[in-house]
Every structure is written in C-alpha cells, then in structure tokens.
C-alpha cells in the first residue's frame, strides 16, 4: 500500500444550495399579520401556567394545553442581555458591528432577540427600557421591526 503515499491528499471545495419556504401556521400567521398590518406585537398566553409566550405558539411548552388566544405585548420592553457583534458572517442580516439584544416585552415572560440601534454601545445596560422602530414598508417577517432603541 506504500504507493498510496505518492498521491497528494485530494480535497474539493463545493457547496450545496437549498431553497425553501417556511409557513408560519396558525399562531405565526396571526402574529405576522398583526405586526405587518397594525404594528401590534402579539404573544400567546397560557391561563393555566400564567405565562405569556413569545414567539407565539399553539401549544403551551409547560403544560401541553392548546393555546388559541393571543394578547398584545409590548411595544415597550426591557433589555435582558446584549452583546456587540464585531465579526461578519454571511448569515448576519446586518453588517458588523451591531448590537444584538434579548428584550423582554412588557407583558411577556420570554425574550425576543433583536437589534438595538440609535444608541452608543457604552450606554447599553441590562434593564434599559427600549421601544421598537417599525419598518415603513412591512412584509410580514420579523424585520418589520427594524430595531429597538432607548426610550
């Protein structure tokens, strides 16, 4: 088998491209319609567990009951955690640097990951109160909120 050593290891660079179309379903469609058409942010309450979930869902994570109701949450919220992204990745929706934060909207029990803008990074802190800036032309996806900014 020695003669195998005369061959330089062979490698190829390729890529796989896949297209898809994700359907948001019952709870998701209702959320995106409200965001796009009325600039309202909705969450899913579970009366059993006394929790309000974002993103909205049709099943309670904790007690498995079916959730049919939706309530308005936010639009104001509180920064729970944040970071400054300083490296570029093709999947990033914005060029670096940008501030990425988890914001708990008023009335919700779970956080929403989104951008912070119109603020110096040095000024951002946990507990900071923020409000959303909506896109003027909204399409029914999460970037209908452009970013959050301080009150």
């Amino acid at each position: 088998m020695d003669d195998l050593n005369q061959y330089q290891p062979f490698e190829v660079d390729q890529h796989l491209t896949a297209h898809g179309n994700y359907w948001a379903g019952r709870a998701g469609s209702r959320f995106y319609r409200a965001l796009r058409d009325r600039r309202r942010i909705l969450g899913s309450p579970c009366r059993n567990c006394r929790k309000v979930f974002w993103p909205p869902r049709s099943i309670c994570t904790f007690c498995f009951s079916e959730l049919r109701e939706m309530v308005e949450i936010g639009p104001l919220g509180t920064v729970e955690t944040f970071t400054l992204v300083t490296y570029a990745e093709p999947v990033h929706p914005r060029p670096a640097p940008f501030i990425y934060a988890v914001i708990r909207l008023d009335g919700a029990d779970t956080g929403m990951a989104h951008f912070l803008d119109e603020v110096e990074y040095e000024r951002v802190h946990v507990g900071m109160r923020v409000r959303p800036v909506f896109a003027p032309q909204r399409k029914g996806n999460i970037l209908d909120i452009l970013y959050f900014k301080p009150l």
Partner: peptide, 10 residues
Amino acid sequence: WISIPMTVDV
C-alpha cells in the same frame, strides 16, 4: 397564511 422564502448555501 404567512410564509417566508429562504435560501441556504452551505
């Protein structure tokens, strides 16, 4: 019903 198209290039 709302949907979002996506393309993933790996």
